[in-house]
Write a protein that binds this DNA or RNA. Structure first.
Lengths: 369, 369
DNA sequence: TTGTACGCGTTATCAT
DNA sequence: ATGATAACGCGTACAA
């Protein structure tokens, strides 16, 4: 190697590059130092705006940086500093408008504080989830926000073991003491159910999400509580457990329409399910709310326009994303990693659009009794 | 330091950790090696499933890994291997269903090949864009997929300079020779316009996106071409340039409704604009398509249900995401970085939902002439 | 104000 | 089959 030093550093550099099979030579802090005639550490000080560099030197260094198009290597920096300035967002499906908006909240917040976001879709699949977590652990993400796809705490425990700050979003995991940002699903379910009951509905179908998921159980609980409180018997045949997906909503709505007496209203556990159900209703020639009531969780910005009839429990996914990211960043930067788990409940709104029960459905129901 | 060696490595390890102010000691390949009684490189071989390790040794190493909960450090690996196994996705707004779906396509494809995805929202803001690109350059992402927010090639040139493979998605940048994955906006605009014309419309308003954006110009071009081809004069007052956002659509639609004679149809450059316009139309008490025609770019999975009246040019964002990721990964892994730029055009479909011109609007138009 | 020496956790290279 | 050594690019600790 020393033989090359006669020809100067640039040549040596090229040789090194060839060995690594890279076409463009990586310009390192050392190259800049050489060109500016200073030590690497001085360049480091300039790049990071640290004190202790004379204006003249600073200038020379900056010129060298510009000339060489030097871009600091964040990976090397991370290796040294033991922080990647990266967080991960693990959710079920970015395609769902709810998660999309959460993601935007997280990214905005992270970016503001100088963090980048890696996102992962688990599709509610535990295997994918644990695979991702493993990878993220290897990546040494500084923290992660996750919507756990089940109650299995295994994956999450491995995060704890490795001391990776973690915020659960939207869902709690039973028995796991961890930070959570969510909205009050039980309360939402209570209000939606009560709304239907107030409109005169008694036979109400629940198209639920997977009970493996906390949020889903909460919605079920809120529904049952409220039915009970109003002394309305619950027909188990009208409770369907499925994925938080459109196809399930479609399928179940169909099945439910075959029940007799037919339910006069449907409570969909989220918007996807509601949309699927809506498809089935249209197919059956039923109008909402004239012929059958429909309420659900989640909203869309354009919902008033698109679904002028749909009463919803509108969570605030953007706020949830922001809150989760802020809590996480807080955990990451706080000196002490020992702390009590926090649970942040983000407000949500009951948005009542048109009455979901009409005279018609009320009459029909009375006839059924 | 040597003083501690009497007490064994574990203690030494703890001491080091204290210095770094980390609670949980980082378990390194060396710790595993010590415990298994082998050299670090041997552990490396086991972890990476390389040959040249006897079954017995492999076993001992695996046991040590399990006991210590060793997780390889991907940053160190990256530093060494000069690849981060990370790609970036830079788009305007993940909240837009079109981009959401692109993102999903990209992530699925990347994950399949062992890459993670960092996503960034530029909001069509050049400053944000170049800031992100700079950060991603520092991060040494192995490649990036970007929807450029303008025709400014500066940011992108810096990518070229540093030899970072890059695929443009949805939009070309004039004068920049680069890989692109997009759909044929001009053709889509032609077909949508012709569709309106065939229905008898002659006064058609165009609510366009920013002409700074390639896609937007293409849609304008297709519109103009088709009008011209049909010998229909174009009223400049009926062409509005705005963002690809709902509020603009709302605003412009209002303005356009004040024109006299009022246009009989609206061509919205994307779905957000169309939704905004729809709001304005409803406010004005106009129904689609009975009172006014409306067509647009982009579709939603549920569109048939939600907008049973809306004729659209349905691009295939998922396929676009997949294609972009595949092209990018291909560029990244191909030995030779010199190549001709490729342009991949992803099919799209004209989805005609109900007639967008009715007898009513045709009659009104004739009366106007 | 500026520089030297070393270590962050891996792996390529070469030697045994 | 296994290991010693060096290097990836940067920043801390300490010295000058």
């Amino acid at each position: 190697m020393n033989a090359f030093s006669i020809t100067g550093e640039r040549f040596l550099l090229t040789v090194r590059s060839k060995k690594l099979d890279v076409i463009d030579p990586q310009v390192t802090i050392r190259d800049v130092a050489k060109l500016a005639g200073v030590a690497p550490i001085t360049v480091s000080r300039v790049v990071n705006n640290l004190p202790g560099v004379s204006p003249g030197t600073r200038d020379r260094v900056n010129k060298a940086i510009a000339e060489l198009n030097y871009v600091p290597n964040a990976m090397a920096k991370s290796l040294r500093s033991q922080q990647s300035r990266t967080i991960a967002l693990v959710l079920t499906d970015i395609t769902n408008p709810f998660w999309t908006t959460v993601a935007r909240g997280v990214e905005d917040t992270a970016a503001r504080k100088g963090y980048n976001v890696i996102f992962c879709n688990t599709d509610e699949d535990l295997e994918k989830e644990s695979k991702y977590i493993n990878i993220l652990l290897q990546r040494r993400v500084d923290g992660l926000i996750i919507a756990p796809s089940s109650n299995d705490e295994q994956c999450l425990l491995s995060l704890k073991r490795h001391n990776v700050p973690c915020v659960l979003i939207d869902r709690r995991v039973n028995g796991l003491k961890a930070d959570v940002v969510r909205s009050d699903s039980r309360e939402g379910a209570r209000l939606l159910t009560q709304h239907l009951i107030d409109l005169g509905h008694r036979r109400i179908a629940l198209l639920a999400g997977p009970f493996e998921v906390f949020t889903s159980r909460e919605r079920l609980a809120g529904f049952l509580e409220t039915m009970q409180k109003n002394n309305i018997p619950v027909d188990d045949g009208l409770i369907k457990e499925g994925m938080f997906e459109e196809d399930g909503g479609f399928q179940f709505a169909r099945e439910i329409l075959d029940c007799s007496p037919r339910p006069t209203a449907i409570f969909a556990a989220n918007l996807s399910i509601a949309i699927g159900a809506l498809r089935a209703l249209r197919e059956a020639g039923l109008r909402v709310p004239e012929d059958i009531g429909l309420v659900c969780f989640d909203d869309l910005p354009q919902a008033s326009l698109i679904y002028p009839f749909l009463t919803v429990w509108a969570q605030r996914p953007y706020a949830m994303g922001v809150a989760a990211a802020e809590l996480l960043l807080d955990r990451m930067t706080s000196k002490t990693r020992r702390h009590k788990a926090r649970e942040i409940i983000i407000d949500a709104d009951l948005i009542i659009r048109k009455s979901c029960g009409s005279e018609l459905s009320r009459m029909r129901e009375q006839g059924e009794r």
